[in-house]
């Protein structure tokens, strides 16, 4: 797929796939095009070319609301919760297009007991980690076939980041398919089955999470080891 803003191409021909039940991480530096790619998959940014398929069905160009009812649910960067509303109201909105939302909310609250304790609390007063939890829980109420996570670690303390990633890993064991976009390469590759490395709109590396963590280029660019030096 290709996409961009105005006449600026941000994603210059990228192919990727996520299999059912997998966690796939997309890592890359600031401005590599990670969020744009995610927005395009969620239907928030029109694709310039290429196709997006869900279960073999072409969903290219479908508006975001239709994507959600088909099961493509995005957890945006910075969480995007409704800060003035209660935890419960946030969850209800997450199930806006889900007829069985009450059942789904019950199930999600079982999954996140902390949110059940705080279901009447105003969302904006939750801690950062709890807000991230709420954002993910709200997405789960939408019964996603694939959950798109945009930078879940942004603005969180390292210890909380660990918790969030544990949570993501736990979701996978419940059968949720996850596409995770992250700058935090170590954490993202640590929980991923597979990963892609995006650099200025192109995938430059692809492989298992473990292989990517061992890749010298990834180490150099994202894990801060060594510097660039080409043998001539």
């Amino acid at each position: 797929m290709r996409c961009g803003y105005g006449n600026l191409a941000v994603i210059k021909g990228v192919s990727l796939h996520v299999e059912q039940g997998e966690i796939v991480s997309l890592i890359g530096a600031n401005g590599a095009g990670k969020t744009s790619l995610l927005k395009a998959i969620a239907g928030l940014l029109p694709a310039w070319g290429g196709t997006i398929r869900l279960d073999g069905r072409d969903i290219t160009g479908a508006p975001a609301w239709r994507g959600i009812s088909r099961g493509v649910v995005l957890v945006p960067e910075g969480r995007g919760i409704f800060a003035d509303m209660s935890v419960m109201d946030n969850l209800v909105i997450g199930g806006y297009r889900n007829r069985d939302r009450l059942l789904a909310i019950e199930r999600v609250l079982d999954q996140f007991p902390r949110l059940r304790e705080r279901q009447r609390q105003i969302a904006g007063t939750l801690s950062g980690g709890e807000q991230q939890m709420l954002a993910i829980a709200r997405a789960l109420v939408g019964m996603p076939r694939i959950l798109l996570l945009d930078e879940p670690s942004t603005g969180l303390a390292p210890l909380i980041v660990k918790d969030v990633f544990e949570m993501v890993r736990a979701l996978r064991s419940q059968g949720v398919t996850i596409f995770l976009v992250e700058q935090n390469a170590v954490a993202a590759l640590g929980i991923a089955d597979r990963g892609y490395v995006l650099e200025t709109g192109e995938v430059i590396l692809e492989g298992s999470g473990e292989a990517l963590r061992e890749n010298p280029e990834v180490k150099r660019a994202y894990l801060g080891k060594g510097y660039r030096e080409v043998w001539e």
Binding site: G13, V14, S15, L16, H17, E19, Y196, V197, E199, E202, V203, I204, L205, E206, E217, V230
Partner: peptide, 21 residues
């Protein structure tokens, strides 16, 4: 079909790396 997808993805990444490095 999956093999074809995997090959295409790897080929695209390969081209990007060759061009850069």
């Amino acid at each position: 079909d999956l093999l074809e997808q995997v090959q295409l993805e790897r080929l695209q990444a390969l081209l990007a790396r060759l061009r850069r490095n």
